[in-house]
Amino acid sequence: MKRKPAILLVLLLAIFSQACEKVIEIDVPAGEPKLVIEGRVENGQPPVVFVTTTRGFFEPTSLQDYADSFVDDAEVTVNGIELARICSDELPDDLLPIFEESTGIPADQAAELGICGYVGLNPNLIGEENTTYRLEVRARDQVLTSAAHIPNVLSPDSVWFRLWADSPNFGYVFANLTDPDTSGNAYRVFTRRIGPNMNDNPVDPTFYPSLGASFADDFFNDQTIEVVFLRGQPPNSSRPVDTGESARFFETGDRFVFKFCSTTYPVYDFFNTYEAQQGSTGSPFAAPNNLNTNINGGLGIWAAYSCTTDTITAVP
């Protein structure tokens, strides 16, 4: 059903091929800046939180503008324990790749931009299954709160690669998943190409969420189902492997890590609206909806995951 608006758009554009478009100037006044949280805690990992502010949608966004949107004087606590502020321009060189892994910003540039995040270095904050993590952020005279629960780890029954239709090289990843008998289970999948492979495809610096890979058991509670996933890739990527016929597909010979995470329904709800918004940009049929945040007093997401990984080589 999610595809209906997209199909209607295809119909519209296919029939009226004379449709034309032009670039226009739009003068929309920026709204009041709001605080945005992007935080996650994962089993076996410390919590990491970034605090930013919104920017006028049509304002120019250079890398420096982006760096300036990070709030570096916030007070961030998880379960009452304050997180340490870590800024990219203060990091030793050997930790910059870890920063890159978290933010996607190349290490050499991160060293110059003072982008600050908040990390839970206290061992008590290392993510554990079946544990709730309460977040509190104080910044700009505001208090933002949220809570996230790491569910029990659930591994897929099996994961495999399969070529699609007539393609000799490209394919998807399939997983068999047995959902627990409790309703409201939610999942999210990430992939990371680690190579090397015979195709010389670039390795990914971090995990990328697979498109449409945030889902819940609304319709398959307590059932075993087969789920198909595409390859996650960087947003607006210009890498050859991320464009053209290879975009979003795994290629024969690829080695990659398949990361399967259980999460909670509010996190699914956020990313479901996030993906809907990303997928509907430009559609005249889509309603202009904001995301379903789980942050009280602000925007963004405080996400908790319990994840397992599988390393797969794409062999038909």
């Binding site: 739009i26 929309v28 006044p29 920026a30 709204g31 800046p33 709001k34 945005v36 992007e38 930013t52 502010t53 919104t54 920017r55 006028g56 949608f57 966004t61 982006y66 949107s69 933010t103 996607g104 969420p209 960087p234 947003p235 996030y274 918004q277 990303q278 940009t281 202009p288 909806n289 904001n290 995301l291 925007l299 963004g300 997401i301």
Partner: peptide, 17 residues
């Protein structure tokens, strides 16, 4: 129309006015 924008997982996210 969106009045503000912000980034989640390095993707531009819209905050409608």
């Amino acid at each position: 129309l969106p009045a503000n924008g912000y980034f989640i997982e390095n993707r531009l996210t819209l905050d409608y006015g």
